[in-house]
Design a protein around this nucleic acid. Structure first.
Lengths: 218, 218
DNA sequence: ACGGACCTCCCCCGCACGGGGGAGACGATC
DNA sequence: GATCGTCTCCCCCGTGCGGGGGAGGTCCGT
């Protein structure tokens, strides 16, 4: 069954963009839209989305407030993915304190947006690279930010290493040989990578690696 | 067992570059080097490489001559991959007539080089996009060049379509649904794509798609 | 009329892959 | 000392994947 998403943003254009990006995925379904945080609660109750993609700046009730409201008043609340235009650390931190599960810049690439939705839907938290580092530097792991072993999506060093080898086309057995560990170990790492990236298989993981710039062509 | 390669180029720098690129692959092994075509035959007899990466311009004996000589005098000859600096159609065509199995530009990206070696090692012929088209236009499928339905590695339109969907992370079943055909059909196309790209699985195919610029991040 | 590519679908088959568990060892942290 | 995360390895299990064949259809150029 697909991941259901509720879009909350005052700009129709942004909603349309998000919808286009997300609907292009077979496993993601946009079940509703709202133009302001004030309209969110009844919609969440009615639609029961897995994820709410929530804008920060909105006229009546901003995303931070709306996040708090949803988490406070709805039982079995959805995961909250905060969508913002600026790399505004203040907002990010506030949103995380309000209980958001991740945040995402509107300028993110489609694949990043998709992965973000998949990730939070699966119960993972995420912050994206640029802001994560500054956040960690400023607040010292203030929110749910991972200790950021690496920057990308909370991958551990070993997992990142495995992902790099995956992105070079190696099989589990080849990775095992390269790292001088057992194939079972590699499978564990691969599974962890898939989970953290919100990928269904190694191909999607490699795509994510390219799309996020974790590995670069050439 | 790995693919064994003999490098033949008068420039040490180029040899070093090729060696670095190829040795980075677990399934490829550089077993020897030669600085001129004149030294190739005894080396081929001694080392019995699967593939000879042969430069065109060399001081004593050029790559075309050397290719002819090897194929004429060695039994169970290796596959010949002609490496050239320029998109010189004349040389390409001559090399193919001499019996070379593929050619490759030095400016090609590492992944392309790797795939070229794998491809010819597996008995496939290959010509790379830019020159293929001009070749086909000029000689009317004079050599082993495919009719080049699309530009990339001789993929047909349908295969290219399938590759694009593969590069978006879709499974065979999802691709089948998207294209409104059976999964068996998709499997056929995928197999064709893998063969033509010299990829072992869909992950390597997607990597090739990114590395060759067939699909672009973002 | 004939070959040749291409697209479509079918069979069988083996295996790597990925999900779901669990578990021991180590170091850092508390 | 207890706890936590990481890395390591193990089990079972289902299935998607890819290789190996083949075959019928269309459309093309010759």
């Amino acid at each position: 069954m697909p991941v259901t998403v509720l879009l909350v943003d005052d700009e129709p254009l942004v909603r349309a963009g998000l919808r286009a990006v997300l609907e292009a995925q077979p496993d993601i379904e946009v079940v509703g839209e709202a133009a302001d945080g004030a309209a969110v609660i009844p919609l969440v109750r009615q639609l029961r989305p897995d994820v709410v993609a929530m804008d920060v700046r909105m006229p009546l009730m901003d995303g931070i407030e709306a996040t708090r409201a949803v988490l406070r008043t709805v039982d079995a609340p959805p995961r909250i993915l905060v969508v913002t235009t600026f790399e505004d650390d203040e907002f990010v931190y506030e949103a995380l304190r309000a209980g958001a599960d991740g945040f995402l810049l509107k300028r993110a690439r489609p694949a990043e947006i998709v992965h973000a939705v998949r990730l939070v839907a699966e119960g993972e938290s995420l912050l994206f690279p640029a802001s994560v580092r500054r956040l960690a530097a400023r607040y010292g792991d203030g929110g749910r930010a991972a200790r950021a072993p690496l920057s990308e999506a909370g991958l551990t060093e070993r997992e990142a290493e495995v992902l790099r080898l995956m992105a070079r086309g190696l099989s589990n057995a080849e990775i095992a040989a390269r790292l001088v560990v057992g194939t079972e170990t590699v499978k564990s790492h691969v599974s962890a990578v898939l989970a953290k990236l919100g990928a269904r298989d190694r191909t999607q993981a490699v795509i994510a690696a390219y799309e996020s710039g974790f590995v670069a062509p050439g």
